[in-house]
Amino acid sequence: MKIESQLKNVLAAGRFAVTAECGPPKGADPEAVIKKGRILKGYVDSVNVTDNQTGVVRLSSLAACVLLLQEGLDPVLQMVVRDRNRIALQSDLLGASTLGIRNVLCLSGDHQSFGNQTQAIGVFDLDSIQLIQTVRRMRDEGQIIGGEAVSPPPYLFIGAAANPFADPFFYRVIRLAKKVKAGTEFIQTQCIYNLDRFKEWMSQVRDRGLHEKVYILGGITPLKSAKMAEYIKNQVAGMDIPEPLIRRMKSVPAKGQRKEGIKISIETIQALKEMEGVHGVHIMAIEWEEAVPQVVEQAGLMPRPTV
């Protein structure tokens, strides 16, 4: 069984990291997870497994992580605070570590009103920053919330999300600083389409010296179509697609739009590689895992390091 997080090793070695996202299926189907894992294997350092994203019931993140681990991948366990209180969260952190999972991503989670269980109670016992702090204390101080000892402690590389595109803008970097203060070691950003705003955010990050305290992975989601671009712009809160990008997608015939989407992703990655303080990319090709190897290859990120 793996001892160290591959993601942590790659980042610690100063290499530009590549992770991808894997959404578990809406069913008790191991093959669906394994299939996605096999598409990604060799092209990414770690695979990030979503936790009932958008509030839709799916195969558990923990179970899917174990399946990926068995396939020889390094899974990142996403954990949202929407569905579990601090007892369940801490218990699952111990469970994940025991099963050999070495990365955790601490998130609030999409509100339950967006999913297919709109009558559910939202737990929100902790918030995402408090979850980061909890994992860090468990791991480094061997203490659960309240101070009781936990032995042996869970061994996890700790991540969180940041959204440079949400409002209020001046506060986004303060919130990142809080996440770093709480103990996060890597950050995955919201999908980057507005490079100018991302650059501005990164310069604030550097002003505070945060890029030296936390690894930042830029979020990449290849656009499948001009329609998708418009949908994201108009329907998804906290995402920012500039008008010229939508025009660019529209200017290409429908059957060439996927290719254009990949091209945009590659250009974004190339820009990120040049940006001081960006340590890697996280590719979220939603239900389009086949795009990941193309993007990684064409962005010149192959072969992946063996550290």
Partner: peptide, 20 residues
């Protein structure tokens, strides 16, 4: 706050409105 966050706002805050 729809997520009763003590260390907010979450990533869904845009133009001063709640995503929920």
């Amino acid at each position: 706050c729809a997520k009763q966050i003590f260390n907010g706002p979450c990533g869904g805050s845009q133009d001063g409105k709640c995503e929920v």
